[in-house]
Amino acid sequence: MEYAYYPGCSLEYTGKPYDLSIREVFKTLGIGLREIEDWNCCGATMYMSIKQLVGLAVSARNLALAQNMGCDICAPCSSCYTILRKTNRHMAWNPHSRDLINEALKAANLSYDKMVEVRHPLDILVNDYGIDQIASRIQYRFDGLKVAPYYGCQIVRPVYHFDDLDDPQTMDRLFDALGLEVTDYPNKVRCCGGMLMTTFEDVALHLNDELLRCAEDNGADVLATACPLCQMNLESYQSQINKRYNTQHNMPILYFSQLLGLALGVEPAKLGIDTLLVKPRDLKLKPLSLKVAV
């Protein structure tokens, strides 16, 4: 089992804990992860707003680099995941787009013709590796920690891929197997505002206040994300939200892969737990009792 790893720009720095924990979890489970050599930015939503072809061609360079690695791509950042998949859709649906993208790639002596599947690590872990397999490998079990699984937008929309558009369950099922108490709350796929936190801060602060409030009201101790931009918005603006709305948010925002890593017995520091801005309090992690040797 091996995947071509596309970390994306966010995972190099602001999303560092995500990168660390994905690598640790894959290593611990024995799933291969080979980084695509010299990958570039996927273009994010920025190029899509200026010239779509430039965005698609920039993103396609990564697909062209990965096509000869002989495996699916693993893209943890929701935005990269969506953009790379969108590029594939343009290649597959529209011969005109395909020709233009390849003409642009030719300027760098590249071409893209084998379609490489782009996957999210959540999908890989749960659907390829399997929850039962994961459950058999855990060293610790959470006991009484309530987690709100937050999927955000781009791993469930715009096109159905590995989970339901309105009520996805992949993270819920994974957490259940780790002993976590999954919070049922209505905002699990509601938008965090993405780049609006930079361009229209007022709007984004309001969206994040609503998300945090909804998770708290439904009893969550921590919130788990699968996207570096969601994590950043939800985590680092809590003090600003508190000032503006007179709230007391103090919600640790963890990556789903950090929680999984902890259950697998990886040291917290190797998962970047110490680099979180809102420190998780007691995570209620208990070692599994040793099985009696027969």
């Binding site: 072809l53 061609a57 300027a107």
Partner: peptide, 19 residues
Amino acid sequence: KKVSEVRAIIDKASQLGEV
């Protein structure tokens, strides 16, 4: 390393029509 490749792609794609 190969930032020149990215620039070549952007330059070329900017000259072409829209998808």
